[in-house]
Design a protein around this nucleic acid. Structure first.
Lengths: 169, 169
DNA sequence: ACTCGATTTCATTTTTTATTGAAATAGATG
DNA sequence: CATCTATTTCAATAAAAAATGAAATCGAGT
């Protein structure tokens, strides 16, 4: 081996076609549920990796910064999308993708959708009170629309437990 | 009436508490499905308005620009969230909120979620081919994970027609 | 077919969001 | 307990997305 070359290069090693496809796919999914590109990149890389990767490896392969890697892994851990595995003789944390894909959908529903529906129903309560103090015809319009929206939201919310069960099954 | 004041003020007239609540609520919902703030503002205003509003009115009440109003209405029309009504003796288009709330959810599922699931399934096909040309243990890992993801995606996609029916019912 | 107000378009600007990387912190190892 | 390396934090920077408004287009009324 020529002098100056190490076993593990410091330069970014090119991603395989498989890795690129996986990364692009997960960037797309994750954007849909409001997660940033770097989070999708990390998960996409881990998804097709047969070995656990350290943060260093992730930075190097993806060409992202320390901060992005650290924060991305934090997000992925928080939704249970990655877990760290112990690697004997290495101080660094090593990560593998959790393959329970439903976790993403579930996290989105429980952490984004559900709270927003709840907040909307609260607001509707406030708005119904405000509408009560209005002039007759405006009041009637507002009350009717609010009632209608309330019913739709309640109905939608009532379906969420079923949806969650379906997704994890 | 004092001199210099017109029937319709050019200055932005303050939003009522009801309007503010409605606007904030819809900004929240619309962000969730990837639509910008100005789109939520316009719909929120129209939702509690008992009369149809012209683009002028919308700009003035919300304090947004011509471009934002025009583009926001374009988006809302494209998802069927507003419709224009004819106002005799006025050349301007006047808009009312379409109250079929399910349209937003439906548009999101059909225009964002479904295409992304389809695209992901395509990519999985590509990735399965790419994996076939890999070294044995990596191939096994990749194939197994891709198979698992494919099943989950197919199952999720098969549920969408039911979900759509539920939402519009 | 001209005029004039209404609306759309789009290059520029502003705002928001994501990324970077140096410094602070944590925590394992001798 | 001192010294490492690994990781997190966060202020600064870069990138992306949204808003602005002048100019172009449209289209009803004359």
């Amino acid at each position: 081996m020529p002098l100056g070359l190490k076993e593990t290069a410091l330069e970014t090693s090119a991603l395989s076609e498989l890795e690129v496809e996986s990364i692009e796919m997960f960037i797309g999914f994750f954007k849909l549920i409001g997660l940033q590109k770097s989070v999708g990149e990390i998960y996409g890389l881990l998804f097709v990796s047969s070995r656990a990767l350290a943060m260093d490896d992730i930075m190097e392969r993806l060409g992202i910064s320390l901060g992005a890697a650290s924060q991305g892994l934090k997000v992925l851990r928080s939704v249970g999308a990655v877990k760290s595995v112990y690697m004997p003789g290495d101080r660094r944390d090593h990560y593998v993708a959790d393959l329970e894909l439903s976790k993403f959908a579930t996290a989105f529903i429980q952490e984004e959708l559900k709270p927003r529906l709840d907040r909307a129903l609260e607001r509707i309560g406030t708005m119904e009170s405000l509408a009560s103090g209005m002039e007759s015809s405006d009041r009637a319009t507002a009350k009717e629309r609010l009632e209608r929206l309330k019913h739709w939201l309640e109905r939608t919310e009532s379906m969420l437990p079923w949806l969650l069960k379906f997704l994890v099954k």
